[in-house]
């Protein structure tokens, strides 16, 4: 009904213009234009709703990704800590009745220097151990020298001496229970354990 009255009004206006002017006849205003703009408006409205939904979806996606990134990075951090801990726990070994650092163990100790430098709150304890061949009580002194030798190495490479404790267990805590050179070689060792600041460790 409304559309019909608009058409009637438009028709009256055209007649009026034609009656009082001798100029070229005006281009007829197509009623379809109005119809289209309405449709467009409708479409825009719909589009904006769609866009809104898409944006929301995108935001959700973004949030999800963000959560994933956090989770990933946490996992990565855990992996790093685990890896660093493993590196730190790598034992070094000694020759019979000797306490000098073997050249093939210097790399392992350098790695520990890096870890200690990258993690300023980290404190460790080095325990020296011996095989069963020597004297029971003398081995406490020998294990002490082995632990101290590793500490000296770390300290001489820039680690604060207060961050490294040393202990000796002599031959009292063997790793390998055998009575041959292979077992003895495994038992002549320094072990490294974290005593503080080991919750989240960074790679050197």
């Amino acid at each position: 009904m409304k559309r019909l009255s608009l058409l009637l009004l438009g028709g009256i206006a055209v007649v009026a213009v034609a009656a009082c002017g001798g100029g070229p006849p005006p281009q007829p205003v197509t009623p379809q234009q109005n119809v289209d703009s309405i449709a467009q408006a409708e479409k825009r409205r719909q589009d904006s709703i769609d866009a809104e939904a898409a944006a929301a979806r995108a935001r959700e996606e973004e949030e999800r990704r963000r959560q994933q990134r956090i989770a990933d990075s946490l996992a990565a951090l855990g992996k790093t800590t685990e890896a660093v801990r493993t590196m730190l726990a790598t034992m070094i070994h000694f020759d019979y009745d000797k306490s000098n650092i073997r050249p093939d163990d210097a790399g392992a100790l350098d790695q520990k220097v890096g870890i200690l430098q990258a993690n300023a709150n980290l404190r460790i304890r080095i325990s020296g151990h011996c095989d069963e061949r020597g004297s029971d009580e003398y081995n406490l002194a020998l294990g002490n020298r082995r632990a101290t030798a590793a500490k000296q190495y770390l300290v001489s490479h820039g680690i604060d001496a207060g961050r490294v404790e040393t202990v000796s267990y002599g031959e009292e805590r063997p790793l390998a229970q055998g009575h041959d050179e292979s077992a003895w070689a495994q038992n002549r060792r320094d072990e490294f354990e974290i005593i503080a600041g080991g919750d989240a460790l960074r790679q050197p």
């Binding site: 009580e137 406490l140 002194a141 002490n144 020298r145 101290t148 500490k151 040393t166 000796s168």
Partner: peptide, 9 residues
């Protein structure tokens, strides 16, 4: 007794 420290025993 014997005492082992970083200075030795």
């Amino acid at each position: 007794f014997s005492r082992a420290t970083e200075e030795g025993t």
